[in-house]
Write a protein that binds this DNA or RNA. Sequence first.
DNA 1: TTCGACGATGACATCGATGACACGAGGAGG
DNA 2: CCTCCTCGTGTCATCGATGTCATCGTCGAA
Lengths: 337, 337
Amino acid sequence: MSLTGNGPTLRDVAVMAAVSIKTASRVLNDDPAVAAPTRAAVMEAMRALDYQPDPAARSLRAGKDRLVGVVIDSIGDVFFAQLVAQIEATLDTAGYRVLVASSNRDPVRERDLVQSFVSRRCAGVIVAPNGPDTLADLRMRDVPVVFVDRAGTLAGSQSVVSDDVGFGRTATSHLIAHGHTRIALLSDTPVIDTTRQRHEGFRAAMAEAGLPVDERLVRTDCPGPAEVMRVVPALLGMDEPPTALISTNTRLSLGVVPALHQRGRTDVALVAIGDFAMAESRSPAVTVIDHSPERVGDAAAAAMLARLAPPGDQPSQDPTVIVPARLIARGSGELLP
Amino acid sequence: MSLTGNGPTLRDVAVMAAVSIKTASRVLNDDPAVAAPTRAAVMEAMRALDYQPDPAARSLRAGKDRLVGVVIDSIGDVFFAQLVAQIEATLDTAGYRVLVASSNRDPVRERDLVQSFVSRRCAGVIVAPNGPDTLADLRMRDVPVVFVDRAGTLAGSQSVVSDDVGFGRTATSHLIAHGHTRIALLSDTPVIDTTRQRHEGFRAAMAEAGLPVDERLVRTDCPGPAEVMRVVPALLGMDEPPTALISTNTRLSLGVVPALHQRGRTDVALVAIGDFAMAESRSPAVTVIDHSPERVGDAAAAAMLARLAPPGDQPSQDPTVIVPARLIARGSGELLP
DNA sequence: TTCGACGATGACATCGATGACACGAGGAGG
DNA sequence: CCTCCTCGTGTCATCGATGTCATCGTCGAA
């Protein structure tokens, strides 16, 4: 009597087909060394019993499971939700299942989650890292790791990131091209890799144009929409207020847009990094830099599948894949000072 | 030599502590029948080796895994993303991991996913069902099922849904109270349970007010924002156009709002079912009925944990938990005809 | 005719952990 | 002083599948 009350096992299939368990297992694994009639009998039995292999047993014996762990900041964040959706879709075609967990930006939790995924025999792990070397010293059992959104450091791993420097640079030079010289940058802490790089792009573009950076306009104290709604009025109330704003991520845009709206400031130029729902239907419509979660997710999943493929046809990829920037001009970024 | 190159096993711990594997296992499972010094020695060994139990082996032997499968329409959908985030957070406190998969509204895929989760020995499954009886005839092994968002039918299961009839009724009577009599309902197909119930609430409110329902204003042909953007102008172009709109879900609101905006129609009343980012910062701000994914998710996870608790302290809950409606008046729903 | 090769299949151990049950030591009760 | 019981612990089988190696025909080559 089965403890689990579970469905039929390979043993049941074997009995019904009058072969040994091993032979049934061979059929299950497409082992060519099975005579055609035998194979047919086994397959028939599997169908008749509606047999389904037990992943736990397989995983235990084989040491691998068709499972990919995904650790991101939060599954509730729109960007990551769409990222995961795409990862799931791409991996699904290869028969992999997705285990998700939110790190809440906590490097320790991130580490623990990855370790637990590895212990769980995940075939691979996709991680949005919170800082450098978060995964150092883990017993990785050669489980392939792909970092997304932010580059990670780990021997043999691969990163799929966006062109964050390009994001910052493109947004900035777009505004400069429209005559702006006092440009404010709204961002969370530059501890985050992507944030730092967007800053870098901003400064590079300013330098290239020979413009000075007023540090009072570089705000790194905006973790979320609530803070932004306080910071924007403060900026606009300065003696020499900025004529243009750059919102460095979608979460912040969700604060910048209402803040401007509340004050009826349709004259302040704005470029948002990361597209968002209804950006098109504002007045003016919001110019954004498309930070497509789908493209990043698809690239990450593809990279993972490549590493999961049987060794030999390893495409030996670049250690870092960069998804490029794309500016979508809609009006708010084209306002003149 | 281990096939997996994995970390230490219980055997290693046992050897180091100079006890049998079984005793080590007892310590691991908090079996009281272990002498204090022995327990201490084993724990010390576990710490020293940084031992981590193998979920696959446990799951195989015990027939259960600390994993809860979640099957929703799409993890990319904001509503479900937040729902899952909350589920994850609540389950995490009890040490459960989340396995997610998107059904894409396909009942067959939904069925397969649930079956695969059950075969995988998930301790429980949370499902947003796509139609009645989608899970009939599955070998469920007594795995508890909790349906979310839409009620499901399955012996012994539980549903956590929103008060969808109430959503429809509240939205409608709110508009009626502000003098509207020609109210258009924008929705996707009433095959979806929640949609049907919102319709029901709409008709009930109309009937209670003694108002006739003009069937031309009841649009069930809006699967997404794109269609809505065609339908809204068509409605407003009628001989006797509606003076108020009800958007029955967030996805549609993302089309209704731009559609009205494009035409500068700030005079049309609107109540949206489901809150969304920046609903507050429109002109007029959008009156919504808060369809809080967090509350639904938390209730679902709590219900699951209750069923997962050791039998005996089963709180014998209601088969259906209903999260109530809450209208947030912001302006657009209070416009007069 | 005999032997080696090969094709098809099965017996058995194994992955890491837990359940059933047995066993030895020591204390209580007759 | 001898049972009987309890406590702490160990032995063995088991969960469901797969790797290793043995076995048994059968057929072609010497």
